[in-house]
């Protein structure tokens, strides 16, 4: 049943919340050293002062027994209150919200770009497997999965921004700022999509009902593209499910190199500055996104694939 497949999802969230809560303790040991870490994160040369430490402990909910701290923290998180950053001192929820909006836009563009290039490439390649076009596309695809972001991004900047001067090298604001980072992020999913779509298309073209349609006089192009449209829908959801969490919180390299205020860079800066509440909240949100994406993909796959739907119903 669908329910049973979805059951582990909330469990993962609970585990993630415990890990996130425990983070400062994993780093700092007992509560006292956590408090000192908070102080050090704020003022470099803080000298130990019990009064200051007590005030800080109360301010960040670090007083009392650990289980109580966890429940209070979880309660606040469920109300949408992710606390204040140790270093940034502003509400983490607002910081993360802004950053996720940026990363979300970027991720959406990258996924669209990946689907728009990867799916047609896969279909075209499948028309004549082993042909010139297939071989060229396959080579491009191998490049797509082999060139890491930290190599691709600087070279794109060099060519498009410094040498040609047609696109901005950095920053965030207008649509022109989206192009290079989205290109960088799309390379890997596009190559993967092309590969998957190619394999499935070859598979489909060999099936009986396609042969029948061809025999009935439908042009090969029509058959191909009708199939591609359906397949595209499924692959895009599958792709999004696979990559959306990674793109929302994991595009650290791209966001650092292009100076984009997204969630990946927020987390990265927070790790370097040891601003643990930001890391805690970011972890939770990324896991939650992955969980939701998992559910959506599961449902869409069921709806789109009649065979699987029947199989589920029969259980």
């Amino acid at each position: 049943m669908l329910l049973r497949r979805l059951l582990p999802l909330p469990l993962l969230l609970v585990v993630a919340s415990v890990v996130a809560f425990a983070l400062p303790r994993l780093v700092g040991g007992d509560t006292d050293s956590v408090v000192r870490a908070v102080l050090r994160a704020r003022v470099a040369s803080a000298t130990p002062d019990p009064q200051v430490e007590a005030a800080v402990a109360a301010q960040f909910g670090l007083d009392g027994p650990v289980v109580g701290q966890y429940l209070r923290w979880l309660g606040a998180v469920l109300r949408g209150d992710l606390g204040l950053g140790y270093v940034t001192r502003t509400p983490v929820a607002a910081q993360l919200g802004d950053a996720l909006a940026v990363s979300g836009l970027l991720a959406g563009c990258a996924l669209l770009l990946a689907a728009a290039t990867g799916i047609p490439a896969g279909v075209y390649a499948a028309r004549r497997p082993g042909g010139l076009l297939d071989r060229v596309l396959s080579a491009v695809g191998i490049a797509g999965v082999s060139v890491p972001e930290f190599v691709l991004a600087p070279w794109l900047v060099l060519v498009a921004a410094v040498w040609l001067g047609v696109l901005p090298a950095l920053g965030w604001g207008g649509p022109q700022h989206l192009v290079l980072p989205a290109l960088t992020l799309a390379a890997y999913p596009a190559a993967l999509a092309a590969q998957l779509v190619r394999a499935e298309t070859i598979d489909v073209l060999a099936r009986d009902h396609v042969r029948l349609a061809r025999a009935k006089g439908l042009s090969e192009g029509r058959v191909l593209w009708r199939h591609a449209a359906r397949l595209g829908c499924v692959s895009v959801t599958a792709l999004s499910g696979m990559f959306v969490a990674g793109l929302l919180g994991g595009s650290v390299v791209v966001e650092v190199v292009f100076g984009i205020p997204g969630a990946g860079r927020l987390m990265y800066d927070a790790v370097l500055a040891r601003d643990l509440p930001v890391v805690q909240a970011g972890t939770l949100v990324i896991v939650a996104v992955a969980v939701v994406a998992g559910i959506v993909v599961e449902v869409v796959a069921l709806l789109a694939d009649p065979v699987a739907r029947d199989r589920e119903a029969a259980r």
Binding site: L158, P168, A169, L170, V256, V257, G259
Partner: peptide, 8 residues
């Protein structure tokens, strides 16, 4: 990134 920003 700052250097490239100046150049571009």
């Amino acid at each position: 990134t700052r250097a490239l920003g100046l150049q571009s």
